[in-house]
């Protein structure tokens, strides 16, 4: 069984408008792949399609995760199968504490009749919160309710650390973060890097990739990957702008 997140010829549309137009991408376990691209290139659509958002219609193509057909699974099944999406705009859940939410998410992964060990759960959560410099008061606060942008993103990383996915998609996790928060978040992600886990880091700016150094960089434009390279590609883009590539594309 192939240990990759494999995307072949993915076409997806929203409200009848095609956004992804034949996207190919493979993220093997153990690697960090970055996707960069200008606004409107389809970056966020890709993350939503992979997670299974119902507003997006997949019209063609194939996505497998360690050989499993992802498109056959419900949103929550994909999650339990090991896919995690760190949201660009994490949602608020008023009245539901972070601790209860995480507990429910972990509980959902257990077989029927099995209960989470509460002591072990709190111990693990506190250790991971310490790593992210999160105040313990966060456990009692409602999920993302009244959180600052930085707090929300840190909370996403905490959830990722608790759920230990096989593949994590980070959708513009750097947006709205100051440099200190960015470092903390990046450190959290770096600690999660392992041969057992693949990352897809979606970002508009190269800045994040200074802290989460990718193995591979892809450029997404108009619903397709138009260039793939190593981390230097990100620097090149930062220097020359996306026009450099898109003009090249038009010229070809």
């Amino acid at each position: 069984m192939s240990q990759t997140l494999n995307i072949q010829n993915l076409h997806a549309s929203v409200d009848g408008i095609e956004i992804l137009k034949g996207l190919d991408l493979e993220v093997p376990k153990g690697e960090v792949h970055a996707i960069m691209g200008p606004n409107g290139s389809g970056k966020s659509t890709l993350s939503k399609v992979l997670a299974g958002h119902e507003d997006y219609e997949v019209t063609d193509g194939r996505v497998t995760m360690d050989g499993t057909d992802l498109m056959e699974l419900e949103i929550d099944e994909r999650s339990r199968e090991g896919l995690f999406l760190a949201f660009q705009y994490p949602h608020e859940i008023p009245g539901v504490s972070n601790a209860n939410f995480l507990r429910a998410a972990l509980q959902a992964r257990l077989p029927e009749g099995e209960e989470i060990d509460a002591v072990g759960f709190y111990k693990e959560m506190y250790a991971k919160m310490d790593a992210l410099s999160m105040d313990r008061k966060f456990t009692g606060r409602a999920v993302n309710d009244g959180f600052s942008g930085g707090e929300k993103k840190r909370n996403e990383i905490l959830q990722m650390m608790m759920l230990e996915p096989s593949y994590a998609i980070l959708d513009e996790t750097d947006s709205g973060l100051d440099i200190d928060a960015l470092k903390i978040v990046a450190e959290g992600v770096n600690r999660m890097r392992s041969p057992e886990r693949g990352f897809l880091v979606i970002t508009h700016y190269q800045r994040l990739l200074d802290y989460i150094v990718p193995d591979v960089v892809h450029v997404l434009f108009d619903g397709r990957i138009i260039k793939t390279g190593d981390k230097e590609l990100a620097h090149e883009l930062e220097e020359k702008g996306y026009d450099w590539l898109t003009n090249e594309l038009v010229a070809v």
């Binding site: 929550d76 608020e92 009245g95 429910a104 959902a108």
Partner: peptide
């Protein structure tokens, strides 16, 4: 979108709805 968020963390639609409602009256 709230339900989508919760489902992405592994909760079924019913569980997500239930948790939301319990949160509302918490």
């Amino acid at each position: 979108d709230q339900i989508f968020y919760m489902q992405q963390r592994g909760l079924s639609e019913g569980e997500a709805m239930s948790l939301s409602v319990n949160g509302f009256v918490n």
